[in-house]
């Protein structure tokens, strides 16, 4: 899985486009990246998952850790483009109520 930043303004919530499989092999690397950025001052995060076709429990664990880290700073994790089996996995994991979806 690769990710691309869609914003340059550090005063606004970061926006990332993810492409590929958000799985046990890729999620830990993304988790470290996102948590470091949140720690260094990201005021929020929007993930565009339109390019993600596979999400597993390690990816869900990463999302939970990002939600927790942002919540400690009074910020939110938002999603765009969530569909297919990744949406089902988040739904079955009861994580959907924790996240905000935008169009």
């Amino acid at each position: 899985m690769e990710w691309t930043s869609l914003t340059d303004d550090v005063s606004k919530p970061a926006e990332l486009r993810l492409v590929g499989d958000f799985d046990l092999y890729n999620a830990p690397r993304f988790c470290r990246f996102a948590l470091d950025k949140i720690e260094s001052g990201w005021p929020g995060l929007l993930l565009d998952l339109a390019g993600v076709g596979y999400l597993d429990s390690t990816g869900v664990g990463t999302i939970i850790r990002i939600v927790q880290a942002l919540r400690k700073k009074g910020a939110k994790l938002r999603f765009r483009g969530l569909k297919g089996s990744p949406r089902r996995v988040l739904e079955m994991s009861n994580i959907l109520p924790l996240i905000e979806e935008v169009s």
Binding site: L24, A27, P28, C31, D56, S57, T58, V60, G61, I64, R65, V67, Q68, R71, V89, M92, S93, N94, I95, L98
Partner: peptide, 23 residues
Amino acid sequence: FLSLASYRGPRSDDDDGGNSLVA
């Protein structure tokens, strides 16, 4: 819920969360 969002057992690592069993 967030405090319970991930299961942490004696042998869990940072990549484990018990979420696979929830789903």
